[in-house]
């Protein structure tokens, strides 16, 4: 019995794994679709060829930095300044990959490298929730990342070629990612400490977003809130011991 279980896990049919990964990716794809479309339209208006647009979506795969790169390009910015800006915007992924690393101990370096390419705000949130619930391993996670990536590339190409044939705001699709994040946030509220950390992070992020341009507020607020959280946890532990 045990042997059978192990062997199906090791050389099992890739079908169900691929299906599970793709199914878990659908809210992400739904959310990426209008954004990718908008990116394609804007980039095309900024004078980029559809091949150039899809190349950027393929190599970078990070929404907000691609929008900013296109607007900097049309403003005549240098390559170096765009690359540095991209680096700063996407530095937040360090935190996400660090949290995911714990679940990727058994993965070969090659697969880990392929997985890393698809770490975004959205895939991180869904994969982490799944890993925590169990019944999720790196195979499904890799499929999820690359399904989301395909949706991103596909929708930006569609936008590049076709312009706006879907009316803006149709069916509330612009709200898909916010709704997804709200639900994933609910999944993360696993105790008082998590709720307190969430409130601190949210309030700090809002204040910082008002004070500092760009999106550094995400990294700053997350680091500060998690640090406060660790202090609270230690404090609570000390009080129990005394």
């Amino acid at each position: 019995m045990v042997e059978i279980h192990v062997s199906t896990k090791e050389n099992g049919d890739p079908g169900p794994i691929a299906r599970e990964g793709m199914q878990a990716a659908w809210p992400i794809c739904l959310g990426y679709f209008p954004i990718g479309l908008a990116f394609g339209v804007l980039a095309q208006k900024a004078g980029l060829h559809p091949v150039e647009i899809s190349l950027m979506s393929l190599l970078v795969f990070a929404g907000s930095s691609q929008f900013i790169a296109v607007s900097m390009l049309s403003g005549g910015a240098t390559v170096l300044s765009i690359v540095i800006t991209t680096f700063v915007i996407n530095l937040r992924h360090v935190l996400m990959s660090s949290s995911l690393a714990v679940y990727l101990r058994s993965v070969s370096r090659g697969w880990a490298a392929l997985f890393a390419y698809g770490v975004t705000d959205e895939s991180f949130a869904v994969n982490l929730t799944r890993f925590r619930n169990g019944n999720w391993d790196w195979r499904q996670a890799v499929v999820l990342n690359h399904t989301a990536n395909a949706a991103w590339i596909g929708s930006s190409i569609l936008g590049a070629y076709s312009g706006q044939f879907i009316p803006a705001g149709a069916f509330g699709i612009d709200y898909a990612l916010i709704a997804m994040f709200l639900c994933l946030l609910v999944f993360q509220l696993r105790g008082k400490l998590y709720t307190v950390t969430a409130i601190i992070a949210g309030v700090l992020a809002t204040i910082l977003a008002l004070l500092v341009p760009g999106n550094v507020y995400i990294v700053l607020a997350s680091i500060l809130a998690a640090t406060f959280g660790v202090f609270f946890r230690r404090l609570a532990r000390k009080n129990v011991h005394h």
């Binding site: 916010i178 994933l184 993360q188 998590y194 409130i199 992070a201 507020y217 995400i218 998690a226 946890r233």
Partner: peptide, 18 residues
């Protein structure tokens, strides 16, 4: 690890609130 354990909830909140 305790710090990393709190990072996801913090990030999600920091993404959504603003």
């Amino acid at each position: 690890s305790e710090w990393l354990d709190l990072i996801p909830v913090a990030i999600l909140s920091a993404l959504v609130f603003p």
